[in-house]
């Protein structure tokens, strides 16, 4: 049967996870975790609630060089933050389509990535912005790029007695622009069939974050700059970039449709990013 723990400091969280011997599950918003718990109420899970931990990083901290998210940052926090909307429009757009309003009031950004669903809404955007994940455990902290965090569906490099303490996003460089596109089965609240976050730099390099088209959210970028005004060039670049996708058929879509939709959404996201107003970089 499920057990509940409410530690009040980071060290205690790590100890509780360690004591749980692999059965520990971190609880912030619970919007994915509790769906799973309901289906397996007899599993001996230890739910470790982070909401009373005093020494966590603040939910959202904006500095000159970066933005830092702590475990308690919710989708609603992101959706309402105008500073983020200017710097990371693809991330804010993604945060606004996670579940319903009531879900977004609970669901946490870090929980969303730790759930490691290939279809997770915020991962593609976090990937293109070069998010770095700081994991804490018995051996202390370690920081890795988000692109190395995902291992497979539901799997991350975070060990059973570790947890994600923060996610840092460097401020985009001058002239960097980004956008998010998503396809769903119905117009109201739904899980993504395919999602794409696109970033374009002032020089014309393109970065794509792809959701629901591989075992993990995927990151891919062009080797050389592309003339964003040249439709054919963008088309070619996108075609090459999405080559890394390995979509499958599931309840939400067939493989072929997914494959085709990545291209459509990627084109649209790149074009929307290119048309948008760029950001101003750090300390210029």
């Amino acid at each position: 049967m499920t057990q509940y723990r409410r530690p009040d400091n980071v060290e205690d969280v790590v100890r509780t996870l360690s004591d749980a011997e692999g059965n520990g599950r971190l609880l912030v918003g619970g919007t994915d975790l509790l769906v799973a718990v309901r289906r397996r109420p007899l599993d001996p899970l230890v739910l470790v609630d982070l909401k009373a931990v005093a020494d966590l990083p603040p939910a959202i901290e904006v500095t000159e060089a970066a933005v830092r998210f702590g475990p308690t940052a919710t989708m609603s926090d992101l959706a309402a933050d105008s500073r983020l909307a200017a710097m990371f429009p693809a991330l804010v757009a993604a945060s606004r389509v996670v579940g319903s309003l009531a879900i977004r009031n609970r669901a946490s950004l870090i929980g969303n990535i730790c759930n490691a669903s290939p279809a997770g809404d915020t991962a593609p955007a976090l990937l293109i912005y070069g998010a770095r994940v700081t994991i804490v455990g018995r051996a202390g902290e370690r920081t890795i790029p988000l692109s190395q965090f995902f291992v497979g569906p539901g799997l991350t490099t975070c060990g059973p007695d570790e947890f994600v303490l923060r996610v840092d996003l460097p401020r985009p460089a001058d002239g960097y622009r980004s956008a998010f596109e998503r396809l769903t089965r119905r117009r109201g609240v739904d899980l993504a069939t395919v999602s794409v976050a696109a970033g374009v730099s002032a020089e014309g390099s393109i970065t794509l974050g792809l959701g629901a088209v591989g075992p993990t959210p995927l990151l891919t970028e062009t080797a050389a700059a592309v003339d964003l005004e040249d439709v054919d060039a963008v088309e070619q670049a996108v075609k090459q970039l999405i080559g890394i996708a390995t979509p499958i058929s599931d309840l939400r879509s067939g493989r072929e449709y997914r494959q085709a939709m990545i291209a459509v959404l990627a084109r649209r996201a790149v074009s929307a990013a290119a048309r948008s107003v760029g950001t101003k970089g750090p300390s210029t």
Binding site: V35, R185, R186, R187, G188, V189, D190, L191, L251, R252
Partner: peptide, 24 residues
């Protein structure tokens, strides 16, 4: 309602059985 080869309902529940919302 979608079934697998064993006759199990694959979209058993609200997460994957979609009904119209306000936005549909």
């Amino acid at each position: 309602v979608l079934l697998d080869d064993h006759g199990r309902i694959q979209n058993l529940g609200a997460l994957d059985y979609r009904i119209p919302t306000f936005n549909d």
